[in-house]
Write a protein that binds this DNA or RNA. Structure first.
Length: 494
RNA sequence: GGCGCCUUCGUCUAACGGUUAGGACUCCAGGUUUUCAACCUGGCAACAAGGGUUCGACUCCCUUAGGCGCUACCA
């Protein structure tokens, strides 16, 4: 049987980083087994629907290279269209299917109409809590006569359809990740399957769709584990074959609570905005809850397909450590070739308002040099502004004391800077680069030492205590600007 | 409260009864560098607790504790 996995988000705005991991794992399993990965949109809660969220979801999967084999995609006009033969893949488009399914369950005795109002339910719940009981539906309508129910419906009464879970017995199933799990039927609630507005709840829709879409592996977050017995009961009630279930460990905040906005970034977009590379994010989340059992830390998508296995998925939740994310990102940044890195960095440069007209050839060359200089220093692309500001928008408001190296005096610093100036002037504009500069400056440092020469030069050019090497900066600055900044330094000292 | 899941360095994790409990990130120290970063070398740091089973338990069983999740006409 062909392996078919799916990811089924709700279009409530952004994509959660944990959701991306769930999607990745599902995608990997499909690819590894030459199967299909299905994207399905679970938009049965109208109140939480966010316009544009589906489009956004589709785009993100495209960006990450996790495009579904079936599901909604965007056409040239950016409209949502369906791809695949097992649709519709957007639940709101097939409400009649769920209604039909719910009615079928009523007919075969596995579900029933319920006319209790939400006020009634609230009251009932409050009382149960007061009495220290587990809050549950009191099953008032469970044994209502079918003909009477029919009459009330025709009279226009609002109703829901509830699952008629067995009063006793146990349900056991084998979770792909957790092994054998057992629940007691008597503790299960008579879950609403069809809401009074005629829309299905998650529990109904997920079962109907996973069956219709021929899903073989349901890999989802751990929070769904407690409702799996209801789902399994539904499969049985319909007489359908069960898929395999696997419940993934949660992503956690540093305090080990469920990952939330208050503690960390949760939206995938947030990570992109900070300048984490696609490869980094994929690699990182793959390893949060799974590992191949070797010491390998860096994985391409292709390697992940090869190595991934459900057996090695972790049971316990995983804290998302930003420091390690940064480290991984720096690894990928170092591996990029200059052109690609430059084009990735351009948007971040624009964002820091340092430069806008990047069509200029000369400017692009300058930017490339800055990128080259930054490549080993960046943990995130959005850090580029800090380094680039030295070139585009220098503050140079350092105190003159900073120019003085160790035991040197201001006078000797002035002398050294003047010497550097003289030497720079002997280089013609066209030849002004770090190699030529280095050839010349060697004589100076040989005589006076590295520190007394290079330290004041560096401060003069960068204005900072810490910065990239001075000759690198000078190279990018060019001869005129370099001389200008040295003059400024000398002026400060006088 | 009830039910369920989980538990190896601070974090991500390896170990599938016999290891000085390994790796990575972080942190610290040294080296390199005029400075910073990067890089190199080294170091600190863990089997939640208590019972069993066994010649031998991180590994198997039980109990306890703690953490988390679910307990909606939300997913």
């Amino acid at each position: 049987m062909q392996t078919r996995t799916r990811f089924a988000p709700s279009p409530t705005g952004y994509l959660h980083i944990g959701g991306l991991r769930t999607a990745l794992y599902n995608w990997l399993i499909a690819k590894k087994n030459n199967g299909s990965f299905v994207l399905r949109i679970e938009d049965t809660d109208r109140s939480r629907f966010v316009p544009g969220a589906i489009e956004n979801l589709i785009k993100i999967f495209k960006i990450f290279g996790l495009e579904p084999d079936e599901g909604p995609v965007l056409n040239e006009k950016e409209e949502i269209v369906e791809k695949g033969d097992n649709g519709p893949y957007i639940q709101s488009k097939k409400l009649d299917v769920y209604r039909e399914a719910a009615k079928q369950l009523v007919k075969n005795g596995h579900a029933y109409y319920c006319f209790c109002s939400s006020e009634e339910l609230e009251l009932n719940k409050a009382e149960q809590i007061k009495n220290g009981e587990a809050p549950r539906y009191n099953r008032r309508c469970r044994d209502l006569d079918n003909r009477e129910a029919q009459k009330r419906i025709e009279a226009g009464e609002l109703y829901v359809i509830r699952l008629k879970v067995p009063l006793q017995g146990k349900i056991k199933f084998n979770d792909l990740i957790r092994g054998e799990v057992e629940f007691d039927y008597s503790l299960l609630d008579d879950q609403v399957l069809l809401k009074s507005d005629g829309w299905p709840t998650y529990h109904l829709a997920v079962v109907v769709d996973d069956h219709h879409m021929k899903i073989t592996h349901v890999l989802r977050a751990e929070e769904w584990l407690p409702s799996t017995p209801k789902h399994i009961y539904l499969y049985r009630a319909f007489g359908w074959e069960l898929p395999q279930f696997g419940h993934l460990p949660l992503l956690l905040n540093p305090d080990r609570s469920k990952l939330s906005k208050r503690h960390a970034d949760v939206a995938v977009e947030d990570y992109l905005k900070k300048g984490y590379l696609i490869e980094t994010i994929i690699n990182f989340i793959a390893l949060l809850g799974w590992n191949p059992g070797t010491d390998q830390e860096i994985f391409s998508l292709q390697e992940l397909i090869r190595e991934f296995s459900i057996e090695k998925i972790q049971k316990a939740g995983a804290v998302l450590d930003v420091k390690k994310l940064d480290w991984l990102n720096s690894c990928y940044i170092k591996k990029k070739n200059l052109d690609e890195l430059t084009s990735l960095i351009l948007p971040f440069l624009k964002e820091s308002n340092l430069t806008d007209n990047i069509t200029d050839e000369k400017l692009l060359l300058k930017i490339k040099k800055i990128v080259a200089l930054s490549q080993d220093r960046l943990k995130r692309l959005n850090e580029i502004g800090e380094i680039a500001s030295m070139f585009f928008n220098p503050k140079l408001d350092y105190s003159s004391d900073l120019l003085v190296w160790k035991n040197e005096t201001k006078d000797s610093v002035i002398k050294n800077l003047e010497n550097i100036k003289k030497l720079i002037k002997t280089i013609n504009n066209r030849d002004f680069d770090k190699q030529h500069l280095n050839e010349k400056i060697v004589d100076l440092t040989a005589e006076a030492g590295n520190g007394p020469i290079l330290w004041p030069l560096r401060v003069a050019l960068s204005g900072e205590k810490n910065s990239p090497p001075p000759l690198e900066i000078a190279d990018i600055l060019g001869k005129d600007e370099t001389l200008l900044r040295i003059n400024k330094a000398v002026g400060k000292l006088k």
